[in-house]
Design a protein around this nucleic acid. Structure first.
Length: 424
DNA sequence: ATCCAGCGGACCTAGGGGCA
DNA sequence: TGCCCCTAGGTCCGCTGGAT
């Protein structure tokens, strides 16, 4: 249980002389929004403030703008400010300007540092308790100071928001570039001057003349039985046979596009693994998710892992020597792979692909040396992009952190606003 | 007749909405 | 405002059909 005294604005001793301390109860009233019914939850063009930001058609009567919306469920404690009229508040509290004894913009900032997102008394589904929120103490500046703080923070945070938006746009562009780069490489190769031919598949278009086209996936794998399988039948590997130690069992949750990341923790005995040898996965094998949203995530089973056993919904390929595992994995994760999977995926209770259909998918493929060249090119390029992306993400986090500390300093009286204004 | 293959749907869990 | 219920998606398993 969160202790209210732990939040930073409440137990402060030193603050400007003409400021007061007050419980939230005496500063603002948290009113309940309407709970929408299922039929009102239809898509529409009226904005809805709820736990998931959906859009509905229902209108909240007599709402005075502007107001603050405080998340009650889901992302509880999340504070939103709106100038709009005619929107809906679903499963959230709101404070409108008519019932707040303070400057609403200032209150919007002051609420953000109260730590409302940590106050929940619901042990089942966490949610903001209104009574507990009311007990939070905040520092109440004079109205004049409230206005100054709001004005200052409005300008500063708007500037930060613009910067963050630019960086997020960059992240989006990098993601698009990454996708485009891979799609281009696995359908056109790296040499723009290579003579081309028709691939026979309209949405692939032309491919380099010397590439194989119209190759069944089945043809890429070794001749032996068991080179192209999915995991054992449900009844051949029972939960009761799973153990904490032994030969690892690989689930689809372990497969991430462009990288294997083991999340599962279960294993089978060596004896059971011998029985299921047909479904063994060795380092260097390609593994592909058979179900998912959408199915088809693929990665290489890494050299660092011991041999394992795949579960039913994981496809495992052992490729012929003239095919490169990493290249095939890049291909399956590319737009080309997504399109192919989309053609054969069946939505029954779950979207999934059948092994038979998967084996018959027809792909295009360069010679082995070119596969290797493309793979190392893509590895270095995507690594560059990924590095840039994570650097940008880090700077977005820093900006958010800066925004938080600025708000905290301003609403707790730690900031000399006139002085800070002079530095803007 | 026997063997092999896999889909349909139950089960489980987490998250979120609805209502008393 | 707390509890109940629904939904979504991953997991698990048994029934059943087709090939040989």
């Amino acid at each position: 249980m969160n202790s209210l005294s732990s939040n930073n604005a409440t137990c402060q001793k030193d603050f400007p002389k003409d400021w007061k301390q007050a419980r939230l109860r005496y500063v603002a009233r948290l009113a309940y929004g309407d709970s929408l019914t299922a039929s009102q939850r239809e898509p529409g063009d009226v904005p809805v403030f709820g736990s998931n930001g959906i859009v509905g058609l229902h209108k909240l009567a007599n709402t005075l703008a502007p107001l603050i919306v405080v998340g009650r469920k889901g992302s509880f404690g999340k504070i939103t400010y709106s100038e709009d009229r005619g929107f809906v508040i679903d499963t959230a509290y709101f404070i409108d300007s008519s019932c707040a004894k303070a400057n609403l913009r200032w209150l919007y900032y002051a609420l953000q540092v109260l730590g409302l997102d940590e106050i929940s008394q619901d042990t089942g589904v966490p949610g903001l308790s209104r009574e507990k929120a009311y007990e939070c103490r905040l520092l109440l500046p004079t109205i004049k100071d409230q206005e100054a703080i709001a004005h200052f923070l409005d300008r500063k945070t708007a500037a930060i928001a613009t910067l963050i938006a630019k960086k997020q746009r960059l992240i989006q562009l990098l993601e698009e570039k990454r996708t485009a780069l891979i799609n281009q490489a696995v359908t056109k190769g790296l040499n723009p001057d290579a003579p081309m031919k028709d691939s026979g598949v309209p949405w692939i278009g032309e491919i380099p003349e010397h590439w194989e086209s119209n190759v069944k996936l089945r043809y890429l794998t070794r001749k032996e039985r068991g080179s192209f399988v999915n995991g054992p039948f449900g009844s051949d590997l029972l939960v009761s046979e799973l153990k904490p130690e032994g030969i690892p069992v690989i689930y689809i949750r372990d497969i991430k596009p462009y990288g294997y990341r083991r999340k599962s923790i279960v294993c089978v005995s060596q004896e059971k693994a011998n029985q299921l040898n047909l479904f063994r996965v060795d380092p260097g094998d390609v593994i592909i998710a058979k179900v998912g949203d959408p199915p088809g995530d693929s990665c290489i089973y890494p050299e660092s892992e011991p041999p394992g056993i795949v579960t039913q919904d994981v496809i495992r390929l052992k490729l012929k020597t003239q095919y490169n595992s990493e290249y095939i994995s890049f291909m399956m994760n590319s737009g080309l792979g997504t399109n192919l999977i989309g053609m054969i995926s069946i939505a029954s209770t779950r979207e999934r692909v059948s092994l038979g259909d998967f084996k018959s998918l027809r792909v295009v493929c360069p010679p082995i040396t070119e596969q290797q060249r493309i793979t190392s090119f893509l590895n270095s390029e995507t690594q560059y992009i990924d590095n840039l992306t994570s650097k940008t993400l880090a700077s977005v986090e820093k900006l958010q952190e800066y925004r938080r500390s600025l708000i905290t300093a301003a609403v707790t009286g730690k900031l000399d606003i006139p002085k800070a204004e002079a530095n803007v």
